[in-house]
Simulated assay, not measured.
Amino acid sequence: MKIRHTAVAVLAASALALSACATGEDFEEQPNDTANSAENGSDSGSTEASAASDGETITLEDNHGTKEVPANPETVVATDNRAFEVLSEWGIELAAAPQPLVPFTVEDYKTSEDIVDIGNHREPDLEALTAVQPDLIVNGQRFTQYYDEISELNPDATIIEFEPRDGEPLDEELRRHTEALGKAFGHEEEAQQLIEDFDAAIERAREAYNGEDTVMAVNVSGGTIGYIAPGLGRTFGPIFDLLELNPALEVENASDDHQGDDISVEAIAQSNPDWVLVLDRDAGTNSRNEEGFVGAQTVIGESEALQNTTAISEDQVYYAPEDTYTNESIITYTEILNGIAEQMEQAQ
């Protein structure tokens, strides 16, 4: 295993302009200018590897069945956005990764010239992934669609995938994901600590919420507000179930699309949420560096139509960490839950 040390309302339908956005994962990061060739990455992987796999394996049950994971993988590739921060925190070196998708906060993976950049999920260079000759691939999230192709191109590699399964509670799936990574990389104690921190954050947020205040979740992209449906929507949807939040607005046929559903500021104002939870999608991509970028705090906080809502007037708006859209790891959810709890505690 390669290791390095890192620092570690309910409203009438007429009141809501709501429609599902187009499906598909929107992502606007561009490949890094310093991306390496697969050839260079492969050479680096062979010279910097620590102990070679000794033939011992660890048995894991992932989304596709029983997998025998090499106990000491020489060459690791990760495509799973939920895994980047966790693996980085444990000091795991990667031979290849989709660097445009790596959260900007995970700097050692985002900018490393020793990592072969396989591009984003729209047009990935899977041949470059194969060229580094991985023996372990941590696949997931935006790359789940390429599982079969990656498997065919890398018959000698073990591929593990713990993307949250449909119909399963997200908190349980995040624990499963973290436990598996801990076993795969020999960081079981650290994995358990992440889970304990996550569980503590859940309990803290549950205690901080008074059980009565109404809550709405939205995302912002390109200056446009999208409605995040309780239980369904991106990032914040499961938190409604997890904390038993009282929705300020519920509509039929809401989608789970990553862009959310169209909603007017007038509909938000009419529902008058006590709290608003906000995901800034653009802040997690290169869009944040573009001229004319307008962040979610400006879009929400300076909207005239929302100034008289309880959430705005009482400063009860929670903004998720800027990197959340590309970093929905257990660490990020712990941070979100603690952030919500802190604001609600202050409001008591």
Score class of each variant (00 low, 15 high):
Phe143Arg: 11
Asp117Val: 06
Val69Gly: 03
Ala131Gly: 11
Ala254Arg: 04
Ala267Phe: 04
Glu149Gly: 01
Phe143Leu: 06
Gly140Glu: 12
Thr66Met: 12
Ile340Gly: 02
Ile312Arg: 00
Ala248Val: 08
Gly284Val: 04
Thr34His: 15
Val77Arg: 01
Gly119Ile: 04
Ala191Phe: 00
Ala17Phe: 15
Tyr227Pro: 03
Arg142Trp: 13
Ala13Gln: 13
Glu25Ala: 14
Gly301Gln: 05
Leu101Gly: 06
Leu194Trp: 01
Asn286Tyr: 12
Ala38Val: 13
Glu152Gly: 13
Gln259Tyr: 10
Pro321Gly: 06
His5Ser: 14
Ala180Trp: 08
Asp261Met: 13
Ala184Gln: 03
Thr224Gln: 12
Asp213Gly: 09
Gln99Val: 11
Asp166Thr: 15
Arg82Thr: 13
Trp275Cys: 07
Ser151Ala: 12
Glu290Gly: 04
Tyr318Gln: 06
Ala78Ile: 06
Gly284Pro: 04
Tyr146Trp: 12
Glu163Trp: 15
Gly186Ala: 03
Ser44Ile: 11
Ala15Leu: 07
Gly167Leu: 10
Val116Tyr: 10
Pro238Cys: 11
Glu168Trp: 12
Leu101Gln: 15
Val220Ile: 13
Gln30Ile: 14
Val317Phe: 00
Ser14Lys: 14
Ala191Arg: 00
Asp62Glu: 10
Val76Glu: 02
Ala267Lys: 03
Glu107Cys: 02
Ile202Trp: 03
Val294Ser: 10
Ile118Phe: 00
Val69Glu: 01
Thr111Leu: 12
Leu101Arg: 08
Ala7His: 08
Tyr209Phe: 12
Leu243Pro: 01
Ile239Pro: 11
Arg142Cys: 11
Pro124Ile: 04
Tyr319Asp: 05
His121Thr: 03
Met1Glu: 06
Thr79Ile: 05
Ser37Tyr: 05
Arg204Glu: 15
Glu244Asn: 15
Pro247Lys: 02
Glu342Phe: 01
Pro124Arg: 00
Asp280His: 04
Val8Asn: 12
Gln133Ser: 14
Val265Cys: 08
Asp315Pro: 01
Asn72Pro: 04
Thr326Pro: 02
Gly41Cys: 10
Ile137Leu: 09
Ile225Asn: 05
Gly119His: 01
Ala200Tyr: 04
Ala97Asn: 00
Ala320Ser: 15
Leu126Trp: 01
Pro73Phe: 07
Leu194Ile: 06
Arg206Phe: 04
Val317Leu: 05
Leu153Gln: 11
Asn272Trp: 00
Leu11Thr: 09
Pro103His: 05
His121Gly: 00
Leu277Phe: 14
Ser46Gly: 04
Thr66Gln: 15
Ala96Asn: 00
Asp315His: 09
Asp274Thr: 10
Pro230Leu: 03
Gln99Thr: 13
Val251Gln: 10
Gly292Met: 10
Gly119Arg: 01
Ala248Gly: 06
Ala97Trp: 00
Thr6Cys: 07
His177Phe: 15
Asp33His: 09
Asn32Trp: 06
Thr332Trp: 02
Ser255Glu: 05
Asp323Glu: 15
Val116Asn: 08
Glu179Ala: 06
Ala128Asn: 02
Asp33Asn: 12
Asn338Val: 08
Gln133Met: 07
Leu337Lys: 02
Tyr319Cys: 09
Ala83Asp: 09
Gly24Ala: 05
Gly140His: 10
Ile58Asn: 08
Met216Gly: 05
Ala7Leu: 14
Thr144Arg: 09
Ile331His: 01
Gly41Pro: 01
Glu302Ile: 05
Asp54Thr: 13
Gln99Met: 13
Asp80Ile: 13
Thr334Met: 05
Val218Asp: 02
Asp117Met: 03
Leu18Thr: 13
Ile150Tyr: 00
Arg122Phe: 06
Ser46Val: 13
Val278Gly: 04
